Every structure is written in C-alpha cells, then in structure tokens.
Simulated assay, not measured.
Amino acid sequence: MNDEELSGRLREAAEAHRPDRARMLARIERGMAGDGPAPRSVRPPRAVRPWLRVAGATAAVCGVLAAGAFAVTSAGDDTRPRGGRVASAPSATAKAPDSPAAKAPLPPEDGPLWTGGVVDPNSNPYWAQSNVTLRTTEPLSALTVELRVAQTGGVNSTGSWRSLPEPDFTVSVDESGGYLVYRWTLRPGRTVPAGTHTFAGQYNHAEGDRDATGDYVTAHAVRASGGKAAVGDRFGRSQ
C-alpha cells in the first residue's frame, strides 16, 4: 500500500468517528440542570484533617462560652420582666398587728389587782415563753386572764401553764385578729386566793429576735367581797 492510499483510508476513518455534537450538548444541558449523576464526595487529604478537628473543637468551645455569657447576663438582669412574684418569708422582726385593743389604755393596777407581762429570759431565736404575773391583795371569785401574742411570723402555740391549781381553770388557745390568744378562766365556784400568781404561754416563732412590743395581757376579776377590777400591761422587745 502506497502513501497516497494510506492517507485516503485515514481520512475516511477520521470522518467515520466524528463526535455527535447534538448528544454532547444534550449531556452538558442535563448536567447543568442537575439531571446528571451526583458528584462523588471527596475525602480531604490526611494532612488537612487535624486542622479541621482543631477548628471544629474551637467552634464548639466558642458556642459554649457564648451560651454561658448569655446565661450570666440574664441571671444578673434585674430589670427584665418576670412571670410572677416570689413571696418572701415572714420577718422575725415584723411589726405587730395594729388593733384597737392594743391601743386601748391598759391600767396596770386596779384596786387589789395588779398585772405585768414579760418575755421569759430563757427564750431563744426559735421559741419563747411569755410570763404574766398577777397579784391580788384580796380573794377573787371570778377571774379571766387573757394573753395576746402578736402574729409577727411563724407564731404557733407549744403549750401553757399556771401556778394555780389546774382543775380550777379552763384554758383555751386560738387565733384572732392577728394574735395568738391564751385565755385562762376561773371555773364557777372556785376562788383565787390573795397572793402572786403566774400564767405563761409558750410558742414557736420565726427565726431571729422577735419583737414583742405588740403583745399584751389583760385580767378581769370579781372580788370575793364584791366589786370588779380590770388591769393590763404591754410587753417589751424579747431578748
């Protein structure tokens, strides 16, 4: 085969293998429209992976610090609106109830009768005893002693006692008008002899030094010889 014949056959073969331009353009359009096969994911080289781990850890730390800063800022913001109010615990030195009875004159002495009230020195920041001293120079055929302990916070009764015989009195304890009220009443047909007698009310209260200036005691009596007497006294601040 001569050179001229070989060149002719090569031209014929090249013409027979011309690319199909229409098919190539169609494939390019499908690829641009997203219809073609999805590209394969490529893993980063090993030399780059430690840097990516450091960058990821740094981003995580920054996220934690940002969240912590937001929490601290929110906790310290006293001006932000709140959903509700928190009730505070009662103060041990809360002001005593302001009742008309507490303002009324309380004569400490009336005829044969005298009374005084004081907080027992053995009281403590959680518990107290209010002592009432009653003196009479004559026997009494009727007597009612009433001790009122102001509800200054957590005040509740733990008991009571008297120096006179227990069977001679009825005793009651209740709450009324912001006071814990102890009442000792002489039973009919009994007599209180002349002398000095003690009545005491015991109670728990809110922790701390309790302000007893709102507490007071009254006593109403009938003399065995006839005639009535009424006395009273206010307490001072407890120890």
Rank of each mutant, 00 (worst) to 15 (best):
D233M: 02
A92V: 14
L6F: 08
P50S: 10
R187D: 06
T136P: 06
A16T: 11
R18T: 06
P125H: 11
A221S: 10
A75Y: 08
V48C: 03
P193T: 04
S41N: 05
A57P: 05
N131R: 12
A55N: 04
W161C: 02
G232C: 07
T73P: 12
F235E: 07
A13V: 02
V145N: 06
V173W: 02
T93G: 14
E4P: 03
A16S: 10
P112A: 12
N156Q: 11
R40N: 01
G195M: 05
G232H: 07
D98M: 10
A224G: 15
A69E: 04
Y126K: 14
L186D: 04
R80Y: 00
A128H: 03
D3H: 13
P81T: 01
S225M: 09
S41R: 10
A13G: 02
V181F: 06
A200G: 07
G36H: 13
L113K: 13
S91M: 10
P107C: 04
A230V: 05
E109G: 14
R40T: 01
R183C: 02
D35G: 15
T158P: 11
G201R: 07
R40G: 01
T73M: 14
T213W: 03
R148E: 00
T73D: 14
P188R: 03
S99N: 06
A75S: 06
A57K: 11
R21V: 12
A38R: 14
W161R: 14
N131C: 03
V118W: 07
T137S: 15
P112H: 13
A212L: 04
